[in-house]
Design a protein around this nucleic acid. Structure first.
Lengths: 225, 225
DNA sequence: GATGGGTAAACTGTAGACAATAACCAATCC
DNA sequence: GGATTGGTTATTGTCTACAGTTTACCCATC
């Protein structure tokens, strides 16, 4: 043990690269969610490997993981293709998200404390500011943070992880929509906070249900691009 | 295109072995769920590869997948360890399963037809027979089939896949318990069928909730082995 | 002109080899 | 005597090479 410890900020916490497959995974996920890689596109291992400056192996492992999480379809002896969302699947995914988020809201309402509520208030304010400033990316980010915070307050790690995965995919499907209903979304967030503050489990569930339901309707009413 | 199609049974559907990683994955999952590989055990790639008669690569890919699905923990530069369930995690997992199954029951109640109900009846009868015969494995299998059938009737593929994963893990955690409450379980199944037949969404949800809740209680009341 | 076969290219699936990292153990120094 | 340092071994992380499949294209044939 070091005699007296180190002043806390002294060590610059040298970033370790971590496993390559992780970074490849994140890079590919980024490329998919930003639509730099289009749905249906054939992902050739050697190409990706070349572009990322690594060998095929880490790419393969990243693709495997993306496959299990539903981002790419892995057809045997043929390779990886970016998953193509169907209308039906988007709907089902949203249903599941509703379910998970509603449960999280319920658990949060049942068990949270003042500190948690304060954190929600802060994130909500942040999001509202972003909307006022027409900062779309900021609003989207704040939205994700808000929902993640509710998950955290729910205190169920399994639920949280599932919701994170489903949430990312929903966001991918619905990105065109997200921009349209930024403002309304934050009004609903305020309602949710109120219900959680009041410890109103039933109310929190209902608000979250309605919240997601609005998203679904916006999606189905949208113009085809 | 073939001129008139083929009689359905004509093609013997020549079985291809399929990717090795799949078979390795299934083999390892089997070993884990049957507890041939104990929680916390260090899985050495080269050992597994040797025992299964393949090279390390397919083993690695299988381990990656098992990792994302929560069966093994993959500590960087150290290897794979069979996941060790904690009390808390078991509880959270069961909560999530309750949620998913209840929703499935609701959807099934809302949308199924006579054929679906008949199928449930049949599976239920099969399970009851197995219980009467003290055929524990048969009862467990029938149980899984029953729940899978409800998922199918719910008609939500995303929900179904999630529930399948969560369900397998729950079954892993709770196997010691499953044997204790085989009989009661099938009584509750009958109630569930009644609710679904009546198209009673609320009732179906409630029954499924209670069903899982009983499992949870049995688990927490159990003797430590 | 359409159809069938055959060939070639590209890509994936698997295996084996090398480099890097972390745990383990013994020897050494305070 | 205890802690630390250096070496050692086992295991993972990554790369390269090869074999097996699938796909696409071209040419010959009807």
């Amino acid at each position: 043990m070091l005699s007296r410890g180190l002043p806390h900020g002294a060590v610059p916490k040298l970033e370790r690269p971590g496993p390559l497959r992780e970074r490849v995974y994140e890079a590919l996920l980024e490329l998919i969610t930003t639509r730099a890689l289009r749905p249906g596109q054939h992902l050739v291992e050697s190409e990706l490997a070349g572009q990322l400056g690594v060998s095929r192996q880490p790419v393969r492992e990243a693709l495997q993981r993306l496959n299990t999480e539903g981002w790419v379809d892995l057809r045997p002896a043929q390779g990886a293709f970016v998953h193509e969302p169907t209308e039906e699947e988007a709907d089902q995914l949203l249903t599941v998200r509703t379910l998970l988020e509603a449960e999280a809201a319920r658990l949060a309402a049942a068990g949270t404390d003042a500190a948690g509520i304060a954190a929600l208030e802060e994130l909500c304010a942040k999001g509202e500011r972003a909307v006022l400033d027409d900062d779309v990316d900021g609003a989207v980010a704040a939205n994700a943070e808000f929902h993640a915070k509710i998950m955290e307050l729910a205190g169920n790690a399994v639920l949280s992880e599932l919701a994170a995965q489903v949430g990312r995919r929903v966001r991918w499907y619905y990105t065109p929509v997200a921009r349209q209903r930024g403002k309304q979304s934050w009004i609903e967030h305020r309602e949710l906070i109120a219900a959680i503050t009041a410890g109103d489990e039933h109310g929190a569930t209902a608000v979250m249900r309605a919240h997601t339901e609005h998203t679904r309707r916006t999606y189905h009413d949208r113009e085809r691009s």
